[in-house]
């Protein structure tokens, strides 16, 4: 059984003028446990919405998202929060670190919503991503590359089965992007997590054995018309 199984997933949003815009319509998508897949997707192809649906941040209008056999659509919001905290790690393009919290606290906080804060594991992960000396620094005191490494450590802190990475190298220069990508992939492998990474960076996509095009997966007519 696939770790992630998506069937007939549909999501629309109502615009300011009241018109409904369909953003995601994906008939089927699967991801095996421990696998690493890169999805290509240009801006506006619904990639963030797609990842939010998988993470349970958004609820679909129709269809199902099954993670490890659990259909997220059947869960209450609170249960989805719980599932996200325990089974999913999320790496954002803009890192989304809590600026008022130290590096260590950012990781511990992520753990506290899941199985519970484990200081030793948090420190070990931060050591692994090369930030053992920066535990008590605040994000603003770190370079962008270092901030992304904190985000990687935080995403892996709860032993997730699935790591979602939304343009994780989008805000990094070429050298930091290569290092961050390498780190994400290695860390996922070491932790036994599957990786679903979305990017429009050709170099990033080319480094994956398995890739798919969100533009092709997404059956929304306006998107397939090549508007974006």
């Amino acid at each position: 059984m696939a770790l992630l199984e998506i069937m007939d997933l549909v999501k629309s949003f109502r615009g300011p003028d009241g018109t409904v815009h369909e953003v995601v319509r994906i008939p089927r998508f699967t991801l095996e446990a421990r696998s690493q897949v890169a999805l290509s997707g240009a801006s506006g192809t619904g990639k963030t919405t797609f990842l939010h649906l998988i993470a349970g941040i958004l609820a679909p209008d129709a269809g199902s998202v099954r993670l490890d056999g659990t259909n997220l659509a059947e869960l209450s919001e609170s249960a989805r929060d719980r599932l996200r905290a325990t089974k999913i790690g999320y790496i954002f393009q803009t890192f989304n670190l809590l600026q008022g919290f130290t590096v260590l606290e950012n990781v511990l906080l992520g753990m506290s919503f899941g199985p519970g804060a484990d200081r030793a594991r948090a420190m070990s992960l931060l050591e692994r991503v090369g930030l053992g000396e920066r535990l008590h620094h605040f994000p603003r005191q770190l370079s962008t590359g270092q901030q992304q490494r904190v985000a990687v450590a935080r995403a892996l802190a709860n032993h997730p089965q699935l790591v979602l990475a939304d343009e994780p190298t989008g805000n990094l220069d070429a050298r930091n992007a290569r290092e961050a990508l390498k780190l994400i992939r290695e860390a996922c492998t070491e932790n036994g997590a599957a990786l679903l990474l979305v990017s429009h960076d050709r170099d990033v996509l080319n480094s994956f054995e398995h890739t798919a095009s969100l533009g092709e997966l997404n059956q929304v007519a306006s998107l397939r018309g090549g508007a974006q």
Partner: peptide
């Protein structure tokens, strides 16, 4: 707003 959203994305519930 952003901090609250990040907390929620990390798994914090609304009641938290």
């Amino acid at each position: 707003r952003r901090d609250i959203a990040i907390l929620r994305a990390l798994g914090a519930r609304r009641r938290t």
